[in-house]
Design a protein around this nucleic acid. Structure first.
Lengths: 297, 297
DNA sequence: TTTTTTATGTAAGGTAAATTACATGTAAAG
DNA sequence: CTTTACATGTAATTTACCTTACATAAAAAA
């Protein structure tokens, strides 16, 4: 066990100080520190009474927690928090651009955040709600078997989507990893089945071929691709052109995942009556197999 | 009593409200508003006693001044100031949410977009640049072998990260899909190796055990988890607590992927001199295997 | 099982803060 | 030279908060 819980305190924000001890809190104490970190630092800028009520614990518990963290009283804790906030606000160059993405030479995190939100905005403008809804409607028809396939990089998204859709509806199948097995899997695709394809540059020959053949067998094709459109678009019934541009050449997959996730949410809402039972069963499975840690809440 | 000059209040910060009335204050009142504006807004985040002392006036004078400005009591004044500050702090990335959270019954796409950007914002506030940089530094040490593992849902992210890191540096290994093979893979982990673990709720027993054992073998552990922290945090050297909350119960993975991607970008920048050669080789491979469509541009 | 420890809440205290009431002083108006 | 209105401080009251002491229940150890 790597104990060393009390590392020499070089954390210069209270948040870091708390996080460095996150493993040594009791349940009630966890409620408190979670709430503190949740919308830091303003969550701490209230009276101890208010704070304790927001957390659903008693005020002495708050006191004890703060003592544990290293403050002799609530008052001194809040004073330090206030100082830290003061520092942050009055030091715009160093600290404030931790929150502001507009600084020209900013941290990587901010640059990537900026890029991703831009991509998201453009993609949302590009894809109409009707188009999206049409896809959801198609996926809601459970008599159509659903197949999912992705490429070298996008196969991760294919898996992610598969894992979630499997919970929501039946008849969901993902293509095997080995490309050599794809022709075999193609045989399972019947007319009126649905095939979801992820293909962003660089477009892969196997995906193109597979889509063409699936199309020939009468399958509906939904395509997740980038703004330059994969050749698969020629066979697709629904194409989602997603902006994947990264600043210096790299491609971002975040927005692609976003749309996959939105699809899951929309479908779950639509099928809820039929789905809830399915999810309950799954919960039971999890409980029985004990693969998961029991929830403490 | 000067009730008349109450202009229709379209100033939405308290500072503006004060400035709009700067001509109607008595000397003692001037001391107060000047001090308030001087280092706004933190000057107002103290007790009325403290505030009055800083200004060299009495507490009732402060009260009267605030009443004049338009607040019924010091308490309500401070509450509004607090709200304003909160607003400022939680509005860094998206200045004005273009996708309107204000539409009550908006389209799923907008709701999910709102959720995701909120998650992103909170996570960025939660994770310090130093912490992130420390992780990048660790991953840049190529003499340390790098192992990646994820759970039921997060294994998709593990794969995504693996695919990208493999391009950037050598000595990257992902855990096999079958959990039964994990103990075997554990044997490959040497002291000073690095293990990246993805574990969001529901936390998986196998991941916890694996992390414990890897830790015992002397490996450094980097953990991607959610705001409630996987138990793996107890063994981790670096923990990224990422907000994954979805509106109606579902968990979002988009921000988790964001941080994985940011890690890739940062590492690529850092290792560029050593990496570029590697990437050129990869390009050649792609050309040779003809798996990809030739670029037409 | 019994005992001890740990976790957490209830209640009471003392204290500081916010608000109100009153008093004093200053400056302009009669 | 009053008188009145305004400006501001002192003091008293009430309210809310922080803190400590004690009690209880659950968990761990014996």
């Amino acid at each position: 066990m790597n104990d060393s819980p009390v590392t020499p305190d070089n954390s210069h924000t209270i948040a870091e100080l708390i996080r460095s001890q996150l493993n040594q809190f009791s349940p009630a104490e966890m409620k408190i520190v979670n709430h503190l970190l949740a919308n830091y630092p303003m969550s701490g800028m209230v009276s101890i009474t208010e704070l304790s009520e927001s957390c659903g614990v008693s005020t002495p518990t708050v006191m004890r927690t703060l003592k544990k963290i290293g403050y002799s009283s609530f008052t001194t804790f809040q004073k330090e928090l206030k100082d830290e906030l003061q520092q942050t606000l009055s030091d715009p160059i160093t600290k404030h651009d931790q929150w502001a993405a507009d600084a020209p030479e900013s941290h990587v995190l901010n640059k990537v955040a900026e890029t991703v939100t831009t991509n998201l905005r453009h993609s949302l403008n590009q894809i109409s709600h009707e188009q999206f809804d049409a896809i959801v409607d198609l996926l809601a028809q459970q008599e159509r078997a659903l197949h999912i396939v992705g490429g070298r990089i996008t196969s991760a998204f294919a898996r992610y989507l598969n894992t979630h859709l499997e919970v929501i509806r039946e008849n969901v199948h993902i293509f095997p990893e080995a490309v050599a097995l794809w022709p075999h899997h193609l045989l399972k695709i019947k007319p009126d089945d649905v095939l979801i394809v992820f293909d962003v540059r660089r477009y892969e020959q196997d995906l193109i071929t597979t889509s063409r053949l699936a199309n020939a067998r009468g399958a509906k094709i939904i395509l997740f691709t980038d703004q330059w459109l994969s050749p698969v678009a020629g066979y697709a019934d629904h194409t989602l052109p997603i902006r994947i541009e990264g600043k210096s050449g790299w491609d971002s997959g975040v927005v692609t995942l976003f749309f996959a996730e939105a699809l899951v949410v929309a479908l779950e809402e639509k099928l809820w009556s039929q789905t809830s039972e399915r999810m309950r069963e799954l919960e039971n499975m999890f409980d029985l197999t004990e693969r998961f840690k029991k929830r403490t809440e």
